[in-house]
Structures are given as C-alpha cells and as structure tokens.
Computed example of a mutant assay.
Amino acid sequence: MGSLFEELEAREAAARGRVEELEAELAELSRRLELAREGLERLRITRETVTEVLAEMEPEMPVAAVDAGQPRSAERVVSAYAGAARQVIGVLTVPNWQPGMLADVLPSAYRDIVEVVADAPGPIRAKQIVPRIGLPAEAGKIEGTRSKLKRLVERGWLDEEAPGLFTPARRRTADSPNSR
C-alpha cells in the first residue's frame, strides 16, 4: 500500500509541476498581450494625432513663395525655428476658395463643418456645430471647431456675420452657388 501512495504523490508532484509551467506560460503570454495592446493603443493615438495635425497644419510660408517648378504634391516649405530647420511637405490643407471650387477639396473635418453651416437655417455658433459633427460638447472640441471655423472664414469658405456667428460665404461672383 505504501507504494500506491508514493505513486500518487509522484503523479501529484508531476501534475503540480505541469500546472506551474502552464501558469508561467500564461503569465508570459499575458505580459506579451499587454505589451501588444499598449503598442496598438500608441499607434492609434499617433494616427489620430497626425490626422489632427495635418488637418490643422498651415505652411510656414505662402504657397507662392515655393518653387513653382515642382509639382504641387511635392511642394516644400522650409522655415527656421530656434536654429533648427523644419520642413513641411504639402500644400494648404484648407485651400483658399475660388469660383467653381467645391467643398469636397477640403479635409473631412472642414467639409463636415461647411456642410453643417450650409444646412443651418441661419447663423450658427461653434458650440452648436460640435454635436452635429459627432464630437462631444467639451470646451476643447468647441475651441478646436472655432479655430477651424475662423480658418474657413480666412480662406473664403464661410463668413462671420458677427463675432462667433458663422454663415455660408457670400460669393463674389453672381453665378456662384451660395454654398460649396
């Protein structure tokens, strides 16, 4: 009978060892999974940040100052900042409105804003636009939208009738549509 108990103890010890090995593997896989999740989250945040920066980025110099011999997609704008050169490649993300130009040339965030303003029955404020473009009505989102609205006014896409009240731009030519 003593050998049966010894055999059971040996099997129990082996099973315990296997459980400990599997637990160690599980802990290692959990650690690797957490690192992968963190990497994924960093990439998501980076993509969103880059998208926001590109949507709001303005060139350091006017487009006319760029070498006209290069294609527009490869225009380079260079400026010095604190002794370091900063290179921006691209064109205005929000171009100046010109006759015949439609809102589909705008980045999606700006296009959504122009569409909401065009659909509004009258002048509209940034805090009214934010929920209509799917953003939470937080101070930061309202200020970011107000900044985009001001840029759209500067570039001729919208008018600001009174401080903070935005409307579709009154076009300079008689045959241009009032919006887009």
Rank of each mutant, 00 (worst) to 15 (best):
E23L: 07
R11G: 13
E6A: 12
G39P: 07
V66P: 00
L106S: 01
P95W: 00
D67I: 05
A174R: 12
R155A: 14
A27T: 05
M57N: 04
E28D: 10
A103K: 06
A109P: 10
R86T: 11
A84W: 09
A82Q: 11
A65M: 08
K150D: 06
E20S: 04
S30W: 07
V153Q: 08
R86S: 06
F166L: 05
V88D: 00
Q128C: 03
L165A: 14
A84N: 11
E143A: 11
A80E: 15
G100P: 02
P121W: 13
R172A: 10
E20T: 06
V105F: 09
L43A: 14
S3A: 15
A74V: 06
E28K: 13
T46N: 09
T51F: 11
E75P: 01
A13I: 08
S79E: 06
G39E: 10
V77L: 04
R171V: 06
G140E: 14
L106K: 00
E48H: 10
L92K: 09
L4K: 05
R151A: 12
S3H: 14
R132S: 05
K141V: 08
P131D: 02
S30N: 12
S3N: 08
S108K: 09
G100Y: 03
E60C: 12
W157Y: 03
E48A: 13
W157P: 00
S30L: 12
L149F: 02
A162I: 13
G140Y: 05
R151N: 05
L4N: 12
G17A: 10
A36L: 12
G2A: 07
L152I: 04
V53W: 05
E58C: 03
G164D: 02
L135C: 11
R72K: 13
R132M: 05
D104M: 06
T167I: 10
P71G: 04
S3V: 14
L165D: 12
N178V: 15
V77A: 02
K127E: 11
P99L: 07
E7Y: 14
M57P: 06
G140P: 03
L106D: 00
E38G: 13
V77D: 03
Q70G: 11
A68I: 04
F5T: 08
V91P: 01
P71C: 06
N96G: 09
P177H: 04
D159E: 11
M1D: 12
L102N: 14
V50A: 02
L106R: 03
L33D: 13
I129F: 02
S3C: 15
R171P: 00
E23C: 11
V77F: 01
E56A: 14
D175A: 08
L158A: 02
E23S: 15
P163C: 09
E138N: 09
E12C: 15
P99I: 03
R32V: 10
E75D: 10
E48K: 08
I133L: 02
P121C: 04
I133D: 01
P99K: 02
S108L: 08
A64E: 12
A10K: 13
